[in-house]
Amino acid sequence: MPSSLALTVARYRPERESEPSFQTYEIPFRKDWVVLDALNYVKDSLDGSLSFRWSCRMGVCGSCGMKVNGTPKLTCATFLADYAPGPVRVEPLDYFPVVRDLVVDLTDFVRKLKHVKPWIIRDEEKPPSEGEYLQTPEQLDTYKQFSMCINCMLCYSACPIYGLEPGFIGPAAVALAQRYNMDSRDQGAGERLKILSAHDGLWQCTFVGECTKVCPKHVDPAGAIQQYKLTAATHWIKSLLLPWGTR
């Protein structure tokens, strides 16, 4: 087992340089350390100027997504031991503008997420006095997987379509739209269909499938998109055959 390990980190300091460079730090190797621990060690003991996002350290908040040796990972769940004896190369997520070092700007995703209306839409709300909307465990089971998304953006970073067509609504946004479409309490599927089957919607996806592979929460956004393509296509055929009966 090595006693130390080379951690190569992408640096970008916009006030000083016009493009990113790499900086290598020698860090102690510890079996129980994840990449995020190594970054925090650098920040605390070697170079306080290094910038990166993190919060919960337990794979729930989705803040610490970065590329580790070329693959999008949650750095709080990526053990250094899996990369020993090194070097380990940490870069910001692909396809998002880099603000500083390992920090990327996620405004584009937040805008797209809001666009797909990820909340329960009711034709008519029932008054609280009538009680809650009930749901069976089977009904919960149909969408539960998609509700596990933590917006960590690893799927966007793995999606070459998002890189090539930045207008593409993207894997997580479709998975989260599908999470509400399949919810038995929701009645907004028709509204979302218009948004999702638009030009920059789900048909941009050509099913590379990498989004599902990198997802740390097993959400399977690629599956969500393909299933939704089937729904959209069925709806389209119905609207051709029965133009009066597709509401």
Binding site: Y12, P14, E15, Y95, P97, V98, V99
Partner: peptide
């Protein structure tokens, strides 16, 4: 040095 305005970060965009 590169132009930098407070609160308006100079983003770096990598090309595919």
């Amino acid at each position: 040095e590169p132009h930098y305005t407070l609160y308006h970060p100079r983003w770096y965009r990598r090309r595919v």
